[in-house]
């Protein structure tokens, strides 16, 4: 009974009647802080693939080689709009909502690095990983065939018939080795830590 009275009183308010007949509903506008699908800014993508590595949704983002350089592409059906790629990108290529402003204000960041792991029971010492690695190829252009190398600067090389990982910190996380491994013996693990920049400097 009380609710009926409440609504009758509500409906006879002149303001309500005026609104009912004349007011048009304001168009629905997403607020400025709404995290939409990431959009491209003017900044240039360097193809470091950090966005692909941090993305929690499978197949939501890919960095493609276009005519004039690299460019990330979002697949909206897969994207869950968490905005982690926006926050992780060191160049600020992507933007969504106010994430870029807020991270600058709060001085927060993600530090990420990669770890390589070779399962010795699965590895058949073919050396495909060492040969296919683009970083390896740049450091030692001579590296080919069985994956042995004279250089100590490469990420990994075959030593005595085994894959030996020398410089894990040089890995860029492209996962080319993982894709070229016939036995899925080598795995690239992404390590991400949310950090406060002031603390990191101190």
């Amino acid at each position: 009974m009380r609710s009926i009275v409440y609504y009758l009183r509500e409906f006879f308010r002149p303001e309500w009647v005026r609104k009912f007949f004349f007011a048009k509903t304001a168009p629905l506008v997403a607020p400025s802080y709404f995290k939409d699908y990431p959009s491209l800014t003017e900044k240039e993508c360097t193809g470091c693939l950090t966005c692909m590595m941090i993305c929690p949704a499978p197949g939501a983002i890919a960095v493609l080689h276009k005519k004039d350089g690299w460019e990330p592409e979002i697949y909206p059906g897969h994207c869950i709009r968490c905005g982690l790629c926006v926050e992780a990108c060191p160049e600020g290529v992507l933007s969504s909502g106010r994430i870029l402003d807020v991270t600058r204000r709060d001085k927060t960041a993600f530090s990420s690095w990669y770890r390589l792991q070779v399962d010795d029971t699965l590895c058949m010492r073919c050396g495909n990983c060492c040969v296919s690695c683009p970083v390896n190829r740049e450091i030692d252009p001579q590296l080919a065939g069985t994956g042995t190398s004279a250089s100590d600067e490469v990420i990994m090389r075959i030593e005595g018939g085994r894959v030996t990982i020398l410089h894990e910190e040089k890995c860029t996380g492209c996962k080319t080795c993982e894709n070229n491994c016939p036995n899925r013996a080598i795995r690239v693990a992404r390590m991400v830590e949310g950090v406060h920049l002031e603390e990191a400097e101190a």
């Binding site: 607020p31 802080y33 709404f34 995290k35 869950i80 709009r81 968490c82 905005g83 982690l84 926050e87 969504s96 909502g97 106010r98 994430i99 807020v102 204000r105 709060d106 927060t108 830590e193 949310g194």
Partner: peptide
């Protein structure tokens, strides 16, 4: 929720060791 985190349901707000926005 949207004002704080930017999205309504799937907020993606917490990360190991803290939160994403102040």
């Amino acid at each position: 929720l949207e004002r704080l985190t930017g999205s309504r349901i799937n907020t993606a707000y917490m990360i190991p060791g803290g939160v994403r926005f102040d």
